[in-house]
Simulated assay, not measured.
Amino acid sequence: MQSGLTDVFAAERVRAIAAAHQAERGALLPILHDIQAEFGYVDPAVEPVLADALNLSTAEVHGVISFYRDFRRECAGRVTVRVCRAEACQAVGANALVEHAEASLGVEMGDTTRDGAVTLDEVFCLGNCALGPAVQVGDRLHGRVSPARFDALLGEAR
């Protein structure tokens, strides 16, 4: 689905995912998670397909997608790096770490490097408050991440 929902197969697959959840109460969120798991992101072309399948307005579907930060509008990089911006991590240097991460990668929060290797995201708690600043690289959580350690973790991930 890298090219969007331009082909009939992708639209039919989205309808099938929606149909699998249609009997559930509040089905939109699980459907969106399944779509993102299958395609890597939630293409804007999904909105009218889901609105039709779930008898919702396109605005309702768009509102849910845009409200939750977990739903991506484009494919993420091969590795996603999430930096905690919660108060406990801010108190021990998360803001400086964010500035370093953006400068080091040449992207802003929410963006992916030009080579598609790394997506940099922020999160507002990784549950590792005693070991801040906390960073998640892929599925691995790291604590007490300094700018030098950030660079080392990124080197390993790339």
Rank of each mutant, 00 (worst) to 15 (best):
E74T: 14
A23G: 02
H62A: 09
G132C: 04
A23H: 03
V14A: 08
A130S: 09
R114N: 12
V42Y: 03
G110K: 08
A101P: 13
R73T: 10
Q2M: 01
V135I: 07
A96W: 06
R69I: 00
L120C: 15
V8T: 05
N128R: 04
Q22R: 10
A94I: 07
A134T: 02
V137D: 06
A27K: 05
R78Y: 02
A10Y: 02
L28E: 01
C89W: 04
H142W: 05
R78A: 15
C89D: 00
A117G: 15
V64S: 06
E38H: 07
A51V: 11
A53V: 11
G63T: 06
P30G: 04
A157T: 13
T113V: 12
R158T: 15
C84V: 02
A91F: 07
Y41E: 03
A134D: 02
L54I: 06
A101W: 10
I17W: 00
I35G: 04
F67C: 07
E122T: 15
M109V: 10
R149T: 13
A148K: 14
A96N: 13
V46A: 15
A11M: 06
A88F: 05
D70V: 10
E24N: 08
L56Q: 14
F150G: 11
E102A: 03
A103D: 14
P147W: 08
G127E: 06
V107I: 09
L32D: 02
V49I: 15
R144P: 09
E74L: 03
L50D: 07
A20S: 04
H33F: 06
G4L: 05
Q90D: 10
A148G: 15
D139W: 10
P48C: 13
T113A: 14
A152S: 14
R158V: 15
P44G: 12
R69G: 11
E47S: 10
N55W: 08
R82H: 07
L126D: 14
F71D: 12
A152F: 11
A152E: 15
V123S: 13
A152K: 13
V8F: 00
V83F: 01
N128T: 00
E99S: 11
D151C: 07
D115Q: 09
D70M: 09
A91Q: 12
R149Q: 14
N95I: 11
V49A: 11
E12I: 03
G4E: 04
F39S: 15
R69Q: 08
G110R: 14
V145K: 11
A10S: 12
V8D: 05
H100G: 01
A11C: 08
P133Q: 08
E156F: 10
E108T: 14
V79P: 05
G127H: 05
R140M: 07
L105Q: 02
I31P: 04
T113F: 14
C84R: 00
T113H: 06
T6S: 08
R15I: 02
Q22E: 06
L97W: 08
V98W: 12
L50M: 13
G155C: 10
E12C: 10
A101D: 12
D111I: 01
T80V: 15
L120E: 09
N128L: 05
